[in-house]
Amino acid sequence: MNSIVRVAKLEDVEVVTGFLEKAKLNSHGIEEMVDSFLIMEDTSGVKATMGMEMFGVSGLLRSLVMTANTSENDLLQLFEEMFLLARKKEVKDLYLATNKLGAMKFVEVLGFEIVDNDQLPMAFSQSEHVKHILTVDNSVFLRRRLV
């Protein structure tokens, strides 16, 4: 089945929120940043989501959720579409956080590099989401420069 990736709209908030909550992820604030969320779907419905929280010219990827039938190619397509969306929103540096070694290897192939916590944008310190990430064991931040 062919998948399409599109930017979420206000009428998608309930779908995105439900998809994230089903995966036991925090869905707080989705409505305010819905135009920075991507939805991957096919004829069976939503296959994956990925969001970006904006901090000036920096973006933090969050809420990457995939169904079991999401392929590696689907995931690559989702990241490529997010890079395009980030550039459209004039993001210069895109960050993500993970505590999974397997995920780190994948995103490093996409051009992300590990950064020390003291290299994170100052605006991140105001984010409850980032504060939570910093409490998770073995979590690291990675950055990809888009300019």
Score class of each variant (00 low, 15 high):
105 K>E: 05
57 V>I: 08
55 F>W: 02
80 E>N: 07
104 M>I: 07
40 M>F: 03
67 T>G: 09
36 S>P: 01
67 T>E: 08
127 S>W: 06
82 M>L: 12
72 E>T: 15
89 K>N: 11
105 K>T: 11
101 L>I: 10
68 A>F: 06
42 D>Q: 04
73 N>W: 08
84 L>C: 05
42 D>K: 13
44 S>K: 15
53 E>A: 13
75 L>F: 12
108 E>P: 06
135 T>K: 15
102 G>N: 09
98 T>E: 12
69 N>V: 09
30 I>S: 13
41 E>F: 08
31 E>H: 05
103 A>P: 01
95 Y>E: 06
77 Q>G: 09
41 E>T: 05
88 K>I: 12
30 I>N: 09
34 V>E: 00
55 F>G: 12
105 K>W: 10
82 M>A: 02
68 A>C: 07
109 V>M: 14
88 K>F: 12
116 D>W: 00
99 N>Q: 05
101 L>G: 07
67 T>S: 08
76 L>P: 01
58 S>V: 04
91 V>C: 14
44 S>H: 04
49 T>H: 06
135 T>S: 12
92 K>G: 11
110 L>V: 04
126 Q>N: 10
87 R>I: 15
46 V>G: 00
77 Q>T: 11
108 E>N: 07
131 K>T: 00
73 N>S: 15
125 S>V: 02
72 E>I: 14
79 F>R: 02
30 I>W: 04
85 L>P: 05
131 K>N: 10
71 S>K: 13
58 S>P: 08
98 T>Q: 14
135 T>W: 03
61 L>N: 06
87 R>K: 15
61 L>M: 15
85 L>W: 07
132 H>W: 05
112 F>E: 11
92 K>I: 14
115 V>W: 09
67 T>L: 08
79 F>S: 02
106 F>C: 01
53 E>C: 15
46 V>A: 03
87 R>E: 15
87 R>H: 06
100 K>A: 08
78 L>W: 04
129 H>W: 02
32 E>V: 00
45 G>R: 07
113 E>D: 09
41 E>L: 13
110 L>M: 14
52 M>F: 03
61 L>I: 15
28 H>A: 13
83 F>M: 13
42 D>S: 13
77 Q>W: 03
41 E>Q: 15
70 T>S: 11
38 L>A: 07
39 I>H: 05
55 F>P: 12
122 M>Y: 13
91 V>P: 13
140 V>K: 11
30 I>V: 14
120 L>W: 02
99 N>H: 12
117 N>H: 08
113 E>V: 08
109 V>E: 14
29 G>C: 10
125 S>K: 14
70 T>N: 05
37 F>N: 06
69 N>T: 10
103 A>K: 03
65 V>I: 01
56 G>M: 11
113 E>A: 06
85 L>V: 07
46 V>D: 00
92 K>Y: 10
47 K>W: 03
65 V>Y: 00
108 E>C: 08
81 E>I: 01
110 L>Q: 13
29 G>E: 01
84 L>Y: 04
76 L>H: 12
139 S>W: 03
